[in-house]
Design a protein around this nucleic acid. Structure first.
Lengths: 205, 205
DNA sequence: CTCGAATTTGGTAGTGACTACCATATGGCT
DNA sequence: AGCCATATGGTAGTCACTACCAAATTCGAG
């Protein structure tokens, strides 16, 4: 970890920060990568060595939060699945709360730009797929197709809780606590407080 | 509904069909819109009047299937929510089964191209948001934020079931029945056959 | 049938994201 | 100091996509 890595990390953050600055000032669509590169005092070539696409500039932080939680879960092989899922959800929310302004900015940009929204959504689905993969390896039973199916459904519910909580959270700054909402979501699902397709007894309170 | 509309619909389908042909032959990334336009014997200008983006060429059918089910649900104001959700799920699957080859082609293209995948995922999320909107207006209670939250969770579960079923369905051509799988998913959720976050009694059978 | 209006079409010019490639500069190590 | 690996900036080019215009086509009215 010499000076090289330090400098790399610094320019990386500098580019991303300048990008967010320009995006919030002039909008995502009205900002060119050339302008971002100029603001960060690097060549466009260099910018593309650090970030794969213009959208990647925006989504890195959220992506890291999701990936970290999945890999953490992956390294807890003896944990009960239901506990692990709860822990993954809370872990993601904790990571996101590390930088609330950034998260809000990401969702704002996604709302005003279709391509950002698309890439954000793909990121969330990748999280679900990775999480489903971890679950799949721990599910018993001799029917792999069924296990894959159950894993996808289970991971999908976790993804849904996170997305729903974050959506409310970014729309009500400071008014709600993310982890509390997540626990409320789990209770609603457990107690039938959410209408489930084909489950008539799941009534709304 | 004169000759104009007929011709419009014909060229529209011609363009989309030629696009799929070229995509499956040479891949999404290695096909240019100019080539598609040339194959359909129209100008690139005309192609962009029919489809908003290159990805839009691929996703139109799936989008229509999802949108149709939501608007159908919207027009059934007196239906029980849980019955409506089940009906929406089955309706989407029925529509998709109308053209299985096209659905499979879409998912194949999404698997090999990040941009197609991103736009497909955004489409699915838009379905969830639209469905959540319909649910929201029918949920009782005096807390709009809570209702919005419940609607998002509920619609998200429907989205999840559809996505999970379709994923298995496209990977096992002819081996599984979509509607049967959807009903199985609903039963698994009802009986605790899917591990839910924070719900210890949801054990795998 | 024919003329005029509305719509559809193809073409042109241009912007901007992104890639491949090369020469140069910079940091790390002996 | 000097060598090697890596990081950087610049150039040229492709391709998706937009704005705009002139020609062709379709439709309805006389």
């Amino acid at each position: 970890m010499g000076l090289r890595e330090v400098k790399r990390e610094r320019t990386r953050r500098l580019i991303a920060d300048k990008a967010f600055e320009l995006f919030s000032d002039h909008g995502f669509g009205r900002t060119t990568v050339e302008q971002i590169a100029a603001a960060a005092e690097v060549g466009p070539s260099t910018l593309y060595r650090y970030f794969p696409t213009k959208e990647g500039l925006v989504l890195e932080f959220v992506d890291d939060c999701l990936a970290e939680a999945v890999s953490w879960f992956h390294e807890q092989p003896s944990m009960e699945l239901t506990d692990g899922l709860r822990a993954v959800i809370e872990r993601v929310l904790e990571q996101l709360e590390t930088n609330p302004d950034r998260v809000r900015a990401v969702f704002d940009l996604a709302e005003q730009n279709g391509s950002v929204s698309a890439h954000l959504n793909e990121l969330i689905w990748r999280f679900r797929n990775d999480l489903a993969d971890v679950l799949y390896r721990r599910l018993p039973g001799d029917d792999p197709r069924r296990a894959e199916f159950v894993a996808a459904l289970s991971a999908g519910i976790a993804m849904n809780i996170i997305e729903s909580v974050v959506r409310v959270w970014v729309d009500n700054p400071g008014a709600v606590d993310a982890k509390t909402m997540a626990r409320q979501a789990m209770r609603l699902l457990r107690t039938g407080g959410v209408p489930l397709p084909g489950v008539p007894n799941s009534a709304v309170l």
